[in-house]
């Protein structure tokens, strides 16, 4: 794939290798070891960090999922697969799973579809488009906690702006964040508001990479705007769409601060997602074992999704 510069380096060292100086031994050592020390120096710290902060925790987490433990007492009780059985039978866990699916489908679908739409609009040669690009992207860099706080303000049924707008339109704004069904809708909408900038900007970068000649050829062949979109743009954006769906799915599984501040998982459990459930089980109810078991389930889900990406990605034709 890439030519290595090792060859050049080795030739150079071969020239220098005549042991006339006192550091002949050093040279000899260098030639035997080659670039191994540098390679290890460059890569090893990363592998060490990953081992300590990713692999050990994963193993330990799997071990915890077989225990009953309240995070405080010195001894843990081995309970086998009891925690997993609990999850299977827990009605709350079923509700949480359903919420997670709704949240993920809503946020991924929303950000990807809206992102594509915005990208197509922003790709046009219009005045002021650079400003609009910046505006669409901006919320993505804001803290989820901060975004949630000011949306709580906006959605407040008594003195929020949304309620005010509703009253101009002659209706009454519901209490979004305390409504058993609308709470989830509100959380999804705020999430899309914050994250659609990322999908938009990635799609825009994708549009930039589509060769102009393809459009010209299609136009020559008599393709209209819709046909160009259907037969040139869409296939060319295929790999990016796949990438965005996977990345967005993973980040929607990780949405925590937004939900914590907006609804705290409520009302009752209406906006409790799998991730939020893990937090509640572990650090509100002090069931480290159950939290760990739920974390194992979450991890397995994400692993499957990522594997699917690799599999599907292999079959796609890259447009390079």
């Amino acid at each position: 794939m890439e030519r290595s510069i090792d060859v050049v380096e080795r030739e150079r060292m071969a020239k220098m290798a005549t042991p006339t100086t006192s550091n002949a031994l050093l040279l000899h050592l260098r030639r035997r070891l080659g670039d191994w020390p540098l390679f290890v120096l460059l890569v090893a710290p990363n592998l060490l960090l990953l081992a300590v902060f990713t692999y050990w925790p994963l193993v330990y987490n799997a071990y915890l999922s077989l225990m009953q433990w309240d995070l405080i007492s010195p001894s843990k009780l081995f309970v086998g697969l009891e925690n997993y059985r609990f999850l299977l039978e827990d009605s709350e866990f079923r509700e949480v799973s359903r919420n997670t699916v709704v949240f993920t489908v809503g946020t991924v679908g929303g950000t990807v579809v809206l992102g594509l739409l915005f990208a197509l609009l922003l790709d046009q040669p219009l005045r002021g488009i650079a400003l609009a690009r910046g505006v669409v992207f901006a919320p993505y860099v804001l803290s989820g906690a901060a975004v949630a706080v000011f949306w709580v303000n906006m959605l407040n049924p008594r003195f929020g702006v949304v309620a005010e707008v509703a009253s101009w339109l002659g209706t009454v704004s519901p209490d979004w964040l305390n409504h058993p069904r609308l709470a989830m809708v509100a959380v999804i909408l705020v999430y899309i508001w914050k994250n659609v900038g990322f999908t938009t900007i990635v799609y825009l970068a994708g549009l930039q990479r589509i060769p102009k000649e393809l459009y010209e050829a299609a136009t020559v062949d008599g393709a209209g705007m819709l046909e160009r979109f259907r037969f040139v743009t869409m296939p060319q954006l295929g790999p990016i769409t796949l990438f965005l769906v996977v990345v967005s799915t993973i980040s929607s599984f990780q949405a925590f601060d937004l939900i914590k501040v907006l609804t705290d998982g409520g009302p009752v459990n209406a906006t409790t997602t799998l991730l939020f459930y893990i937090w509640e089980q572990g650090f509100v109810a002090f069931n480290a074992g159950r939290a760990a078991a739920a974390a194992v389930v979450l991890f397995a889900l994400l692993a499957v999704i990522s594997l699917l990406q690799v599999r599907i990605g292999e079959r796609r034709v890259s447009y390079d």
Binding site: N46, W56, P57, N61, L275
Partner: peptide, 20 residues
């Protein structure tokens, strides 16, 4: 292998990291 770590949600491993 390194990049694949990006898919791992911190919450799935946060209890062991806390203990560490």
């Amino acid at each position: 292998w390194m990049i694949s770590q990006r898919m791992l949600p911190p919450v799935a491993i946060v209890i062991p990291i806390y203990i560490l």
